[in-house]
Amino acid sequence: MLQRNRLALSAAVALAAAATMFGGAARAQDYPTKPITLIVPWPAGGSTDISMRAIADAASKHLGQPIAVDNKGGGGGTVGPATMAAAAKPDGYTISQIPITVFRLPLMQDVSWNPDKDFSYIIHLTGYTFGITTNAESQFKTWKDVVDFAKANPGKVTYATPGTGTSLHVGMEQIAAMAGIKLTQVPFKGGAETNAAVLGNHTMLQADSTGWRPLVDAGKLRLLMVWTDKRSPNFPDAPTLKESGYPMVYDSPFGIAGPKGMDPKIVAKLHDAFKKAIEDPAVIATLAKYDMVPNYKNTEDYKKFVVEVTNSERKVIEGIGLGKKPN
């Protein structure tokens, strides 16, 4: 009996302690009244994580509440947004970074979310810098050399990408289709491996984000072109896609969104805070370290952009045989 009582007492004490420790989740009128969780669907410490942390840090100053970054990696950056769409309340306290794979994966296979319906898009933020490099000792001095060689030897030109179905793969195939050439993709896992592949002459070309920068600076790799809108200030000699005769920009853009059905007023508040964040010089400087440039789109434009991207990607993905199989 004594023991029983002691149990009850201990339980009560523990409960009371717990209650004082956590406090109640107070409901209030003015958003935000408690910390906001930002899902970053990538491992901590990567370029996306660090840039999102910098942006979130700046935005939290304008919101007056801290933003906690929750790294929920997996599924090529889709597990985080998908979990949010399925489980989180649209109260503005859970938002997620939306990488382009959220739109692309549904084109390739059955998924649990619908990019058109399941998200409240908030703001478009920035994108990556992609480029094509070759070994410095290679016979290819310009992109035109590659096209000429590929025309004479279809399928002989190999290029390393960080994976099938990544922006790099889709982009390269789009370029090849426009140029009327056939290239062979060799999918690696992540940027580190593509650098080694092209350095060791295992593949002829590399298509990747700016992980190649130190090797280009050291003269070990030659940058043939970049896929950004304008020439990159860090590599003024490399022509853009547009200059090379391909009217495209390929930068795997990303923004943030919440679950569907968010109050437009809350969306507007978040939009304003994040807009100010990407105008912050400190944030711009952090982004520049990863060769990222702010690419602002407001809520409405972002929604339109999602539709456009989905449509243009559908064509390419079906063209290279990655489309969803009807079964």
């Binding site: 149990l7 201990s10 339980a11 523990a14």
Partner: peptide
Amino acid sequence: RWTLAIPLAVLAPV
């Protein structure tokens, strides 16, 4: 014994 189990069960996770 309870006197050890309860504190341990509460304190370790917390």
